[in-house]
Design a protein around this nucleic acid. Structure first.
Lengths: 362, 362
DNA sequence: TATTTTGGTGTTAACGTTAACGCATTCATT
DNA sequence: AATGAATGCGTTAACGTTAACACCAAAATA
């Protein structure tokens, strides 16, 4: 590998100082057009590539941001990541990818790493509900943003931006949909207890039960961890009950799919015998053979907004109080809730005012 | 944000020179244990965090590698990425994530970026068959590795490592499986023509037809681009034929799923009327309701090997001729080929010697 | 005891870039 | 014509770290 050319090499050939070269390259003012052209042409000839490391050292900016994710195994995060990466690129930033596998210690190590490497900010897509690492960053004033999951810690709330879907409303919509389709015995598989998202969806669901005057049975609320396997387990447990629920709300699609597996395995017909609704509308849910009804959210857009907000904070365009952006969820009606079984074909028969999409049976 | 502490701050407090601090921090020799302890304890107290940028500048190493992917939308890449990220972390490297969306120009820009930021090496997971960007890097001797897809360019072949599955064999196995189940009219949906992977799988498939003396019909070989939609299109086209194939090999699962959609939409029963086999064994394929028979490959392991190999090159542990590592594919029998319909339950009735997995009907 | 090795430390110079400042020269304004 | 402002550069000093070298004292060897 031959030696790389730097601005001093260019300076020598152009008979100017290296500062002038820097000025030309970063098209600053106070430089004669001819000099600039000359320098630029020499740079091109030498195939000059700026050294961002040196630049970062003096500018204290790396144009790099960290992305912390629990695991990309959950397809929800891959869709979110696409929005993040695409937008970051457009704004001239690169993404350092970190998956923590749900481990706070790993997260901490990653944060150390990222900060050592001088990232300008960090995106957290799966904050623990009281994540100490995030509290620390927030208190220090380091630019971060919470996406999807949030932290309820007061000092975080008053300092850092958040983008997510309105999970409370989404949970409400999911359960309401089941209720309107005539269900009274409604089971829920929750997300991990450290997740704001799971908590809020569950709360929303309960609110719906309340609103429609349906009794809440303790045994119908199962814990989960957002992974497929835990949905599967939940399904099995429901089926072991003397009186299983007639409809189930899994607080994310990934678990819903797992739950679906369990039901199929036990020979239960969906939606004839048990109705099922998820949350997220991951790509998989729309596949024929699955056709999961669910609550949709604009994942790509969420990623886009997150990056835009963070970059604004980084570049100083925004220094006001933290923003809290809640995207509207959307009811996505497919086949696992029995909407079509009931003979409904038009939204008006079953819904009022909520935003939704209907995929007619093929 | 308060000022960050650096080694000079520590030096001042410890009454030593900053070089000594550096020695202590990087536990080099030639330092008195007491001095070292003292420095380390002060560093801890001040919550010192090393500045990797400064270090990178002088060491010409960033402990960062670039990962170039077409799109993470294809689940195959997410599984691969997990192996890559996990291993990188273990070896002390971070990953800068770049998705090119199949665009060579974007790829080029990313490479520029990555090199400007001083990454130590780059992993390419989806090289175009004659990718000029890669040729350039190879010629320059910059550390890169090809994963999954490769380039046939001679100067790349003689210089850069490659890890992938034996696609030729895999394609052979897929088609052979169909043949053994009695199919004679076998259709193939290929991958994009710029991909070595698609090409090799197709070649393998043709070899199988040849080996079993089955006539190759031109119209049964359809082009594709590895995305779901193109599988869907392929399915529709097959069904419009006067004599559609009785079995189809989609050169990846993602297309197979799309194809499956098309068949279902047209009311075709799989596998009774048309058998279907894919390639990759992505997670989705194993889901009940899909149960796609396919050719499996160890994606996580592929990522692991890639990183290990690249890091060896970077750190100088390996400087011999390029390695070419071909992982063994594995036949994964589920329900879309009709294996169980035929009454087969044991491998021996249908297979000889190939590595495979059977998932019995549930 | 004289000499060499080594252990422990400091000084100085990189690494490649931008920023602050200074100094001519040119241009605009009165 | 005199003055001030703007323009076009160069010089020097950062940024935070590691590396090369030098130095002295202590230990090991002759």
């Amino acid at each position: 590998m031959k030696k790389k050319v730097n601005i001093k090499d260019i300076a020598r050939l152009a008979n100017v100082s290296h500062t002038t070269v820097s000025r030309a390259l970063n098209n600053k003012s106070r430089i004669r057009p001819e000099t600039k052209e000359k320098i630029l042409s020499i740079a091109r000839q030498l195939n000059y590539r700026p050294n961002f490391i040196a630049r970062s050292l003096v500018m204290r900016r790396t144009k790099t941001i960290g992305l912390v994710i629990t695991t990309i195994a959950n397809p929800f995060y891959t869709e979110l990541s696409q929005g993040i990466e695409t937008t970051a690129r457009q704004l001239g930033y690169n993404i350092i990818f970190c998956s923590t596998n749900y481990d706070l210690e790993t997260e901490k190590q990653y944060i150390e790493m990222l900060r050592s490497k001088g990232v300008d900010g960090i995106i957290f897509t799966s904050a623990h509900i009281g994540d100490p690492n995030i509290v620390e960053l927030a208190e220090e004033g380091f630019p971060i943003i919470l996406v999807n999951r949030r932290t309820y810690h007061p000092r975080v709330k008053e300092r850092v931006d958040y983008v997510g879907v309105d999970n409370h409303l989404g949970g409400y919509m999911a359960v309401e949909h089941l209720i309107r389709l005539g269900h009274q015995r409604i089971g829920v598989v929750g997300g991990s207890s450290e997740s704001s998202v799971g908590f809020e969806r569950l709360e929303g669901g309960k609110k719906a039960l309340e609103a429609y005057g349906i009794e809440q049975r303790e045994e119908y609320f199962l814990g989960g961890n957002f992974l497929k396997e835990s949905g599967y387990q939940g399904g099995k447990r429901f089926l072991q009950m003397v009186e299983p629920p007639s409809a189930i709300f899994a607080t994310n699609d990934y678990m819903a799919i797992g739950l679906y597996q369990a039901l199929v395995e036990e020979g239960v017909k969906v939606p004839e015998e048990i109705a099922l609704i998820g949350f997220n509308d991951i790509e998989l849910s729309g596949i024929k053979g699955i056709d999961l009804s669910t609550i949709g959210q604009k994942k790509f857009e969420m990623g886009t907004i997150a990056v835009e907000l963070l970059v604004k904070r980084i570049e100083g365009g925004e220094s006001g109080p933290p923003k809290e952006i809640l995207l509207k969820p959307e009811l996505v009606i497919r086949k696992t809730c029995g909407y079509y079984l009931k003979g409904y074909q038009k939204e008006s028969e079953c819904l009022n005012g909520v935003s939704f999409k209907v995929y007619p049976p093929s």
